[in-house]
């Protein structure tokens, strides 16, 4: 039902989505929530709100590559890291500000993704997943071990906060508004990508890539694009994170973060953008809300994920069952294509 809003013929099926829900969300994000935050005036709440928004963007960008295009991506956090390190290094070495580092973080992450995708995009199913895992680890190890350049485990202090063309946006509220605005714009862009005929072509690859190929869809090229675009948005999120916290270290971008983002997309429902957003909010806010439980909170979070897979195979709002997607990918790995080609390639 994705392309309906763009359909021309005026018949019963034409569905222009109501403006009420987006308006309410915008009101919440840009008016109610900041008012609430200002009322409490605790740095901790701002921190949580910004973190949640950044993970909304990470989850939304993963939605594009895993939920829509069906590529099991296990190294997403590394591109988030590439973005964050780009911002931090540009700031600390060249003294550049947020206005410049934001787009550059996205572009550098996209460029790295494009380069590593070149040899991996012909890998199918689970082999691709393992390749992304390896890519994620490689990038993480570069951040950790290239001490001369990245300062390794010591991390980098990002001395500059948010600004727009020299106009300072620091201060708690300014930072919140900057993060909220960038995340909202990015999510709208991702929404346009996934709710379009282009998005349908990506979905067809998720459903049956050989069949999509027979319909004229350039599967390899589109997979590359989805991978690169999602890395771009992860890089944007990385830049937000770097300027928000003022300090980054490799630990922020390790494998477990990739899995956390994947879990957000799965809990929310593969293929659904609202699902990815809700999943991100759930998995960021739930552990914070459960702080009273002490060490038990992580067990609770794990339980929520476990139950959601068990009871809601399609997540909260998903189009595809995550289990089925993984099972099919595993199955495809061992299915001989009968073409005398190496298994795992296409």
């Amino acid at each position: 039902m994705n392309a309906f809003e763009t359909m021309a013929p005026a018949d019963g099926l034409t569905r222009r989505r109501g403006l009420l829900v987006p308006a309410l969300i915008l009101l919440l994000v840009f008016a109610a929530l900041p008012a609430l935050l200002a009322g409490f005036d605790k740095g901790y709440f701002y921190q949580i709100a910004n973190l949640a928004l950044i993970f909304v963007l990470l989850s939304a960008s993963m939605h594009l590559v895993t939920g829509v295009a069906g590529l099991l991506h296990l190294g997403h956090a590394a591109f988030y890291g590439v973005g964050a390190y780009t911002a931090a290094l540009l700031t600390s070495k060249l003294g550049l500000g947020f206005t410049v580092t934001l787009p550059l973080s996205g572009l550098v992450a996209a460029l790295v993704a494009f380069l590593v995708a070149l040899p991996t995009m012909r890998l199918v199913s689970i082999y691709f997943a393992v390749a992304t895992l390896a890519i994620g680890q490689m990038l993480y190890l570069v951040m950790l071990n290239w001490v001369d350049f990245t300062k390794g485990p010591n991390g980098i202090i990002v001395s500059k906060g948010f600004e727009l063309f020299g106009f300072s946006l620091s201060g708690r509220l300014g930072a919140y508004y900057t993060v909220a605005a960038v995340v909202t714009l990015s999510v709208v862009a991702i929404g346009r990508l996934s709710h379009s005929y282009y998005g349908n072509a990506l979905r067809s690859i998720r459903e049956d890539d050989q069949c999509a190929d027979a319909m004229g869809v350039s599967t390899v090229r589109l997979k590359m694009e989805a991978f690169t675009l999602s890395a771009f948005f992860a890089g944007i999120a990385g830049s937000l994170w770097a300027h928000m916290t003022g300090y980054i270290s490799p630990g922020d971008f390790k494998f477990s973060e990739s899995i956390l983002i994947l879990a957000m997309v799965v809990v929310g429902g593969l293929g659904s953008l609202p699902g990815a957003i809700i999943g991100a909010l759930l998995l960021i806010l739930l552990p914070e809300g459960l702080r009273a439980l002490g060490d038990f909170r992580n067990i609770m979070v794990g339980l929520v994920m476990f139950l959601s897979i068990l009871l809601l195979p399609k997540g909260l709002l998903g189009e595809v069952s995550a289990l089925r997607l993984v099972r099919r990918q595993l199955g495809a790995a061992w299915r001989n294509t009968g073409k005398g080609e190496g298994i795992g390639w296409r």
Binding site: M1, M7, N200, R203, E207, D208, G271, E319, V320
Partner: peptide, 10 residues
């Protein structure tokens, strides 16, 4: 081979 998790239109 149809795309099962997509609408007929899509």
């Amino acid at each position: 081979r149809v795309f099962p998790n997509m609408s007929v239109f899509d």
